[in-house]
Design a protein around this nucleic acid. Structure first.
Lengths: 360, 360
DNA sequence: GTTAGCACTCTCGCCTTGTGAGTGCTAACG
DNA sequence: CGTTAGCACTCACAAGGCGAGAGTGCTAAC
């Protein structure tokens, strides 16, 4: 049996309808709704073939058909291929202006505060798509020290501010039995900067440590704590933030009316480590569009076997990157999700480039 | 009709049973389960009275009885009064050792990093109680500038770190057309510190601004931005963080099996402003225990009319305070919730006091 | 290859009925 | 007078039966 163009079109109609209604779709519906010049009987035959090939399935004998994961996969692959071509011709992408302009504004408004950017991005996406959005903080594979600063907090507590070259900022409050006064802290900061600037985790050599400790005798415990905190920031990942928004949207989908399913999913979505895994896993199924789609059973995480994930990565600077994902039922509007993520990534990148150019 | 001790005891039995089972409880159940030396018929009479007085109600004619909000109120008020007395005798409080020791450990481990403390506290509470926990960041009514520091980020962006006397730390990245080099930034920071230390929002006088601007001519835009950022931090509240944990737990309660209700509640719990309102509203119903309870309809927020909220405030330093709340169905284990919150507040306070003493 | 027609299947909503839990009332009891 | 036994009554809920509707697969004709 051959998967000809007509079969594919029927499959697409089924998927479109099912995405919209969440109801199994029958042959008559398609014959009437989409004018293919075919009777329901013919469509029925084609559907029977599609079922045999595994692209659709019938929940029970007298219901309509429902796309299988395999059907979605075919659909999505074609969608992504079309988009990849369209991207070159640069026409399809700039259509859905209202929604995308909204996203653009959100990005523009928050581009200076990376953490806000991530939070608001997640919010905007979930608002727009009615799905759940997950955005992970950008972390860098090989980040280096940009700038360090110590500030007094109180009598035996200082604040260490670490800025990496990828402009990630982290605060640590460090307690130590003895800490220097304000001016001495400034000096210590200056020394830390000259000693450690551009240092990689490996660059925090024993030699550098020793020089610092001899320069500031009496404050060894403090310096040790500072250095370990800095190493922690560089080897990050551990406290990488993950922002989610629109978890509530899940409850609106009929496939989760049975709320034991919803609960399992919620459990997963409240767990940061789970989400990180989700964002990292098998990134880059379709390199041409920068968007990857994981459908239903393809998902490694059990709780998500009824869901699909559309995800992309955004790049801040060099190899500093984070992930953006949209999570919905397998019956999700892939076209919208892909389009939103693509323009998201595009706008973030161009906004940052503009920032770069203004900088130089 | 008089609300005698026996009626109250029956009410308490009803509430206990209903908390455990979520099923209307009948007269026979009580007669059998709790050995009062009374037949079900007598209990029936008493229940009829309780219903007439409004403390319980019957969902329908042949079901058992369910506590009304008014019934819960009576129950909770008595509970709080008992606890307030017990607190003086200091006996009841130190019982549920396992759970409370767990909380104590969580606090001790995170006491140095306030933001972690809040996040982990929320997590621990929701884990322990199976309800939803909300913790709001501590904000101070009249906070003052503690220490300021400027750091270079890149060619036209600096990082402003603000530490208030209440030890709240905020970062702002500020863009300006021209920014000074490293050493000059240090000088500027020093000047800002001497000029603004201990300043209240009102203390950022035009005179001070002018002095700074004449001292650092050419950097007026930067200074303006810095000062407005500092004012923002002091007048905070706007970007007060709120941490929630265990939202998923809501789905486990039969009263939310109908998930349109759950959805409404989720919607509310994803909205930061809502949560802030919730934590502020009518704090301090029972001053003696420091814990306040809002039951069902008493709640101003519509979405929460099927929920109860048990909340308390924690104090970091002087008048820096935030809120901790437990949200559950009206049929919630008030005793546990109150006990958890009380010991929570107690331990946070004592941990901080220990910190204070170590400091001096 | 396409279509009309038809028998068949299965779900779903509706109604009915029986069951069980729980009540309120009344009359008797100590 | 408070307490209790007994009984009739009510109501939700589950189980079973029924009809309608949607959709299919198959067959025969175009």
């Amino acid at each position: 049996m051959e998967l000809n163009e007509r079969k594919i079109r029927i499959l697409e109609y089924i998927i479109n309808d099912y995405i919209a209604t969440a109801e199994p779709v029958g042959s008559r519906t398609i014959a009437k709704k989409y004018d293919m010049g075919l009777s329901s009987a013919t469509i029925r035959n084609e559907m029977s073939d599609l079922e045999e090939m595994g692209y659709i399935l019938a929940p029970h004998a007298s219901a309509g058909r429902v796309p299988s994961d395999m059907g979605y996969r075919l659909f999505v692959d074609r969608l992504l291929r079309r988009r990849a071509q369209a991207q070159h011709q640069d026409d399809v992408l700039n259509r859905e202006t209202d929604a995308l302009r909204f996203l653009e504004r959100v990005i523009a408004r928050n581009i200076n505060q990376i953490d806000y950017l991530m939070r608001e991005t997640a919010k905007a996406i979930s608002l727009l798509t009615k799905y759940t959005a997950v955005v992970s903080e950008a972390v860098s594979a090989g980040d280096r020290v940009g700038r360090l600063q110590l500030m007094p907090l109180d009598e035996n507590c200082v604040l260490l501010v670490t800025v990496t070259v990828s402009r990630k900022v982290k605060n640590h409050s460090i307690r130590a039995v003895s800490i220097p006064g304000y001016e001495e802290l400034i000096n210590m900061s200056r020394a830390l900067n000259t000693e450690l600037i551009d240092a990689t985790p490996a660059g925090l050599t024993p030699a550098a440590k020793k020089r610092l400790k001899t320069a500031f005798t009496g404050y060894e415990p403090l310096l040790t704590a500072v250095l370990s905190a800095v190493t922690g920031v560089l080897n990050d990942g551990a406290d990488q933030q993950v922002y989610t928004s629109g978890i509530k949207n899940i409850l609106a989908f009929p496939e989760f009316y049975d709320n034991s399913k919803a609960r399992a999913l919620f459990e997963a979505l409240e767990e940061r480590d789970y989400l990180k895994l989700l964002l990292e896993e098998s990134a880059g199924r379709n390199a041409a569009t920068d968007v990857s789609v994981v459908i239903g059973q393809e998902n490694a995480l059990l709780e998500l076997r009824d869901c699909s994930i559309v995800k992309t990565t955004y790049r801040l600077d060099g190899d500093v990157s984070g992930g953006i994902a949209i999570i919905g039922p397998t019956r999700m509007d892939y076209s919208q999700a892909v389009s939103v993520l693509q323009s998201m990534a595009k706008h973030i990148n161009s906004a940052l480039r503009a920032l770069e150019e203004g900088k130089d």
